[in-house]
Structures are given as C-alpha cells and as structure tokens.
Design a protein around this nucleic acid. Structure first.
Length: 261
DNA sequence: AATCAGACCAACCGCTATGCC
DNA sequence: TGGCATAGCGGTTGGTCTGAT
C-alpha cells in the first residue's frame, strides 16, 4: 500500500518531508546506512541527502528497510505466539516482536489491533506471582527488558544447569515460586526428577503462561529442560527454544545434559 | 458503476528511558 | 544531581484497498 505524501503542516518545518517514503528515499537511506552504519539518527538525514527527521528515518529503517524483515503472511504458529505473548505481556509490542524473528513491533501491533483483538477477549491477563525474590538476569541483547516493569522481579543466582542440580537453582522463596509455576520442588526434585508443570498443577495453560512470563530471564532455560522432560509438545516450546542460549544445538541436547543422560 | 463502510497498515506524535556531560 | 540529547516504545492518525450494497 502506498501512502500519498501528506500536505505540509503550517506549524512544521516546510523543509522536512512527511508522509510516504519514495523508492528513491529508501534507496538513499539504505545506501547511507550500508556505507556509514547507524551512528546518529538525528544527524543522519542531512548527509544522507534526506529531507526527513531522524525519527522518521529510524522508523522507516526499523519497520521496513532493515535486513531480514518479513512482511505479511503471519503463520498460524506466529499468530498463536502473538496471542500467548500478548496475554502475558500486554501491549508490549517490542517485547513481543523480539520473540518473532523478522517481525516488527509495528506490524504485530497492527496485526493485533486489526485482526486478533476481536478474536481474543480481554480481562484474562495473567496474574503473575509477586512473592518470590529470585534475582533476575535480563536476557542479553534484549533492549526491551527494561520496559517490562510489569513482570515479576525475580532474583536467581547465576545459573549453570550443567553443574547445579535443578533443585538447588532457586534458593530464596523457592517454594512460593515453584508452587506458582506448578513445578514440584520437594523430594522428587531432590531425586533429580522434576514434575512437569502440567502434571503438577493440572492447569496446563495457567502454568505455562507463568513460565513464559519469565522469558526474559535465564530461569526459563531451566524450565525448558523440565518441559522437554515432560515430553509435551506445545507452541510455547517454540517460544522458549528461541531463547535458549546454551551451546547445545537443541533443547533436547540441553535437556539431556541437564538430566545427565 | 457509484457509493459507503470497514479493514488494513505505513507513518506520525507524544512520552519515557537512557546515556552523557 | 540536573539538564540535555538521543533512542525507543506505544497510541493514534489518515490514506488506500476491498467487499457489500
């Protein structure tokens, strides 16, 4: 869809162009960024030969021109993930987009507002436990983490699941945490045998919502091990797998390491 | 064929977070 | 510590498309 350039606003700088980007402008911006990189959005337009604000350039680049952007054809799997993440995060479009490679926050926001909002009801936002004090480690390179103030603050010690037994990972207020996540951490855990969240709490959706809510944190990696151990298959796993940072090639490999198999 | 309403989506705007001095 | 510049986010706007009448 091509948007016609807007009529210049009297109150705005007439030298600054607004509205739809032309192919020539796109080309200029891409060429400039390829050559010089992104060094300062505010001062970039002039040397790039663009009569645009830095803000406009940034938006155009982020939402349309940058590499690996995918437009349209949102798959059913992606749609499910958007719905699930939105239930967890609310309108944190950037955070949701970070979980969908190639998709932009703007695209997801539009997709939600125009298609999904009607289908998905409101008022069912996850109630996240707040009683645990497990230290968080934000995911690396996740610029959106700082904006997730609505998520629980969880303190975990530095995790190394290859070394630390699962039942020793969380030490403070662990019971409340495990209970809220539906993960048994009693005797069974000490025997190196976790319950899957689903089997413990009996409310699969509720459990996984809460686990997914921790997606920014290292702890989710541990739950992936648990999840794999349960042998379940679920779109939620797709979400988690994207955030594994282990050297293992797959979640299953990680799980096997974790369980010493 | 013309009109209209709703859907879609690119782009803008205002605000906030962050970093630097 | 406060002020400023910049980046980034989310809400909103408005132009185009499409299907119904």
């Amino acid at each position: 869809m091509v948007r016609r350039p807007l009529t210049p606003n009297k109150n705005c700088n007439p030298t600054v162009k607004k509205g739809a980007w032309s192919a020539e402008e796109d080309q200029k911006l891409v060429a400039y960024i390829r050559r010089y990189g992104i060094w300062n959005w505010t001062h970039m337009p002039k040397p790039a030969g663009l009569a645009r604000t830095g803000k406009s350039c940034r938006l155009r680049w982020m939402n349309y021109l940058r590499p690996n952007i995918r437009h349209g054809n949102i798959a059913k799997q992606e749609e499910d993930l958007i719905i699930e993440l939105h239930r967890l995060l609310g309108n944190k479009w950037a955070a949701i987009a970070a979980r969908l490679p190639g998709r932009t926050d703007n695209e997801i926001k539009n997709y939600w507002n125009t298609r999904l909002k009607k289908r998905v009801g409101y008022g069912n936002k996850l109630q996240i436990p707040t009683a645990c004090h497990i230290k968080v480690k934000p995911y690396p390179n996740d610029s959106s983490s700082h904006q997730n103030a609505s998520l629980p603050t969880i303190d975990t010690p530095k995790l190394d699941p290859h070394v630390v037994p699962p039942n020793e990972i969380l030490t403070v207020s662990a019971n409340s945490f495990y209970t809220s996540c539906g993960v048994h951490c009693g005797d069974k855990a000490s025997q190196n045998s976790w319950y899957s969240p689903c089997s413990v709490i009996g409310e699969e959706e509720s459990s996984w919502e809460q686990i997914l809510a921790l997606r920014d944190f290292e702890i989710v990696e541990t739950f992936c091990g648990t999840y794999m151990h349960s042998g379940a298959t679920d779109p939620a796993l797709v979400c988690m797998q994207q955030y594994l940072v282990y050297h293992s090639d797959s979640c299953e490999d990680f799980s096997m390491d974790l369980w010493g198999k």
